[in-house]
């Protein structure tokens, strides 16, 4: 899939990763890379503006914490109830889009 199209679904990617548990920027970037086997090449820095936007919209909450007791200070994010319902809404939209496009793609005969 094209990276530009996937970048449009950055909210889905970030919210679904946070649905599995609280996380921080670098860890989220690693999870994106691991789960897509490196297929989604987004610049790691671009995660932060998206995370801040989601936080401003109260879909996620940020807090400072440490990895372990002596680990470095990091900013963790957790998904809020508002974020969960937003993710469900995005999923419904995606399903509706898929159903709509499949009407046309079904006509394409694979070579």
């Amino acid at each position: 899939m094209r990276n530009e199209r996937l970048r449009g679904y950055l909210d889905v990617i970030l919210l679904s990763i946070l649905l599995e548990g609280d996380s921080y920027g670098y860890d989220i970037a690693q999870q994106v890379s691991d789960q897509t086997h490196g297929a989604l090449a987004i610049k790691e820095g671009s995660l932060y503006p998206a995370l801040k936007r989601l936080e401003a919209n109260r879909f996620i909450e940020g807090y400072w914490g440490t990895d372990k007791d002596s680990g470095p200070r990091r900013r963790y994010y957790r998904i809020t109830d508002r974020g969960k319902s937003h993710l469900r809404k995005l999923q419904e939209e995606w399903n509706a889009e898929q159903r709509l496009l499949s009407v046309f793609f079904d006509k394409v005969v694979p070579e």
Partner: peptide, 13 residues
């Protein structure tokens, strides 16, 4: 706050 957060990311990287 942004600097601290991004710096921590770069150090991890």
């Amino acid at each position: 706050a942004w600097i601290e957060e991004m710096q921590s990311h770069l150090e991890d990287s």
